[in-house]
Amino acid sequence: MKSSFADDVVDLLPNLRRYAFVLSRSLDVADDLVQQTCEKAFANRGSYARGTNLSAWLLRIMRNTWIDRVRRDRTRGESIDIADRPDAIFTDGARDTETHLMLGTVAHALQDLPEDQREIIVMICVEELSYKEAAATLGIPIGTVMSRLARARTNLASRLDLN
């Protein structure tokens, strides 16, 4: 039987790299994270329930991998806070346009948010997980998802002077 699981994972690579970059703020670390996540995903593909949200399943693996990495890096006393330019991950080929400036402004504001706020805002607003899916992925109650997400968005709004 030909599995479409592999194709689906490959199709989600841009989403994975984007989320990895939001978490790590470093392209090198992001690419490592994507690779480790895919290794784990393929090794554990038997535990993925078909019909459920593959993106949420992959993000959960990536998040666990990231937490593990941060814990180890801290143990080793290494700094992981090497922030690349927030828009470094995007290639839009139009560096001088207004679109690019706006993109850069929002991306900068987003990358300035605390990690827990960055990740939830991307999970919900970009990856389009439901509150329930995000709660399961992060292992927190829905109420916490909502309060954290609301805080993230009001923070972002004030950084962008939207209020």
Partner: peptide
């Protein structure tokens, strides 16, 4: 805020380095 974030991150084309994609395709 949702629309802005979605537009900023969602419509931008995220590139995948060739070697990374090759590794994943190998897996």
């Amino acid at each position: 805020t949702r629309a802005l974030v979605a537009e900023t991150l969602g419509t931008a084309k995220v590139s995948i380095p060739d070697d990374l994609e090759a590794r994943v395709r190998q897996m």
